[in-house]
Simulated assay, not measured.
Amino acid sequence: MTALRPLIVRRMGLRDYEPVWRAMQTFTSERDEDTPDELWLLSHPPVFTQGQAGKPEHLLAPGNIPVIPIDRGGQVTYHGPGQLVMYLLIDVRRVALGVRDLVNLIEQAIIDTLSGVRITAQTRPGAPGVYVDDAKIAALGLRIRRGCSYHGLSLNVAMDLEPFARINPCGYQGLAVTQVADFVHDADASELMVTIEKLLLQQLLQSLGQYSWIDVRQEFE
């Protein structure tokens, strides 16, 4: 039986992408077998991130939005205000999860979160992420280093979706993109973000199920 351990949840607000990415790398490099796992909840100003498998032809017309090549798997995606991002800094060996197990767990947590606001979502074989009908509503990409994960998921809640038209999202030409606000009408955007964040955190903690107590911090040191 896996021993229960503490977990730190950080609510970080709106943060520039690159400093957070570098902080994830540093955290992963410096952690040891006793370091508590962490979940970071935040959003980013407009940015395209290009995964290690990314191909230049999938960047159609980025315009004035910066493009940052990064070290997660996958192709290009977009982050912007009104999108809920969660980074999972988890010692996957310690919690006895394989990479595919973790991906499945994340996808199911997103599906269950959307079900909580009466949105029916599903996965697609061979195409990581979560979809509503034929439109992608959540993307995910992980990096495993030293037996630990970083990067994570992005869930479109109430945002400007136009920048997705400037790329082939996740490398798929013409892929439609949607968001929670398209299905939950007359909802205040900030209140909707709070609701979805709460539901997603609950679902992930329930799925992981290996933590003895949760330390929620508003500040990021």
Rank of each mutant, 00 (worst) to 15 (best):
P56H: 07
D34K: 14
G73W: 03
T35Q: 03
P66E: 13
M24Y: 08
P62G: 05
V76L: 01
V47F: 04
V76G: 02
S29E: 15
A61R: 14
P46H: 13
P36Y: 06
H79T: 11
Q50V: 08
K55R: 15
P62T: 09
Q52C: 07
G51H: 09
G63E: 12
E38V: 09
P69L: 05
T26I: 08
F48D: 02
A23Y: 05
V76K: 02
R72K: 05
R31Q: 06
F48S: 05
L88D: 01
G51Q: 11
E33R: 11
P81R: 00
N64L: 10
V85R: 04
Y87G: 02
E33H: 09
Q52F: 05
T28V: 15
Y87R: 03
L42T: 14
F27G: 02
L39K: 08
P46T: 06
G51K: 08
P56F: 05
D32G: 14
E33S: 13
E38R: 14
E57Y: 10
Q25K: 13
P45Y: 11
T77D: 00
I70G: 01
T26C: 05
P81Q: 08
Q52V: 14
P56Q: 12
T26S: 12
K55E: 15
G82I: 04
G74C: 08
E30D: 13
F27Y: 14
T26F: 00
L59I: 09
V85P: 03
Q50R: 11
D37K: 01
P46W: 03
Q75L: 04
L88T: 13
H79A: 11
E38C: 10
D34R: 15
I68G: 00
Q25N: 10
L60T: 10
P56C: 04
L41Y: 13
E30T: 15
L42S: 10
K55M: 13
D37G: 06
M86R: 01
S43G: 12
G54C: 11
A61K: 14
L42K: 13
E30Y: 05
V76C: 01
N64S: 15
S29H: 13
D71V: 12
P62F: 05
Q75M: 12
Q83T: 00
P66L: 10
Q83W: 00
G74L: 09
D32V: 07
G54T: 12
L42Y: 12
E57V: 12
P46L: 06
V67N: 05
D32M: 04
F48M: 07
D71E: 15
R22C: 08
S29D: 15
L60Y: 04
G74K: 06
G74H: 07
H79Y: 11
D34P: 00
P69G: 09
H58D: 15
Q52P: 01
Y87M: 04
L42N: 13
R31K: 04
Q83H: 02
S29K: 11
P66R: 08
G73L: 07
D32E: 10
L39W: 14
G73M: 05
A61D: 15
G80R: 07
H58L: 09
S29W: 05
D71M: 12
T77M: 04
L84V: 02
V76N: 01
F48C: 04
P69C: 11
G63T: 09
Y78Q: 12
T49I: 07
S43P: 01
